[in-house]
Nucleic acid binder design. Structure first.
Lengths: 128, 128
DNA sequence: GAAACCGCTTTCTTTTTGGAAACTACTTTC
DNA sequence: GAAAGTAGTTTCCAAAAAGAAAGCGGTTTC
């Protein structure tokens, strides 16, 4: 019996990890959420237009929609300042900041990946 | 001038990190890729049908498509064994394994997130 | 030789996503 | 009072992603 139990536990562990990844993916779904969180993570806080400029290619509609979803999930906080032309600032909540480890690993990996791709294209041009 | 240059460098760093995250996202785009990589990461290797069972909800078409893209990007390797009913195994390449840090952070975060959600719903039912 | 299993591919349809442009509402600047 | 800037929302449309279901080519099993 012990063997069967061990196998069963391993399978459960695997399923549990898979479920955890899936849970994370659920909150970060959509083309832009991770980029928005990254932007806020790297810069601290941003206004609507700043985000739109920084997250390349995003339109106002999508930015607005994604920010709302991030707010609902308590990853981002929206603050309105009653200034001359109204100012709105977005920032990561403390909970949102707990995602920074994920973002950081993605940033690290992307940087290595870029180096690899560049190296590959260099190797190709040398061979030619 | 020194101040301006520093600001400029910071902005460049931020852009670089954003670009790195974007590069990573590019390779992992699609609803299923991260789940597939996770499954292979946690289990070592899997056959087509095993993957389809393990990645909940995925259909054969999507699984096939996503696996092809992962193969093209050299994250996954496909091995065909010439057995009675043909056997095909998928596994992470050494390069694909470099993504495990990202996956691991996602798994960790998802696990914490689930605890938070459960705690919240407990608190609610207590309050009621 | 019919059924069943593996590893897909193809077709067809639905859903989701995303973008462009116009519009709101309010304020400052010229 | 016209233009321009902030922070969006709304509408309308196109493209992309995804799903369901059927089919295919091969083999083993009964």
């Amino acid at each position: 019996m012990s063997k069967k139990v061990i196998v069963h536990e391993k399978s459960d562990m695997c399923k549990g990890q898979l479920r955890s990844v899936h849970d994370t993916l659920d909150l970060l779904s959509g083309k832009w959420k991770i980029s928005i969180i990254s932007s806020l993570s790297f810069s601290g806080k941003r206004r609507f237009m700043e985000l739109q400029r920084e997250v390349e290619g995003i339109g106002a509609k999508m930015l607005s929609k994604e920010l709302k979803e991030l707010e609902i999930n308590e990853l981002v906080i929206r603050t309105v300042y009653d200034t001359k032309p109204v100012t709105v600032e977005y920032a990561l909540t403390p909970y949102g900041k707990t995602l920074q480890a994920v973002i950081h690993e993605m940033s690290k990996w992307g940087s290595l990946h870029r180096k690899r791709i560049i190296k590959q294209s260099n190797d190709k041009s040398k061979a030619a």
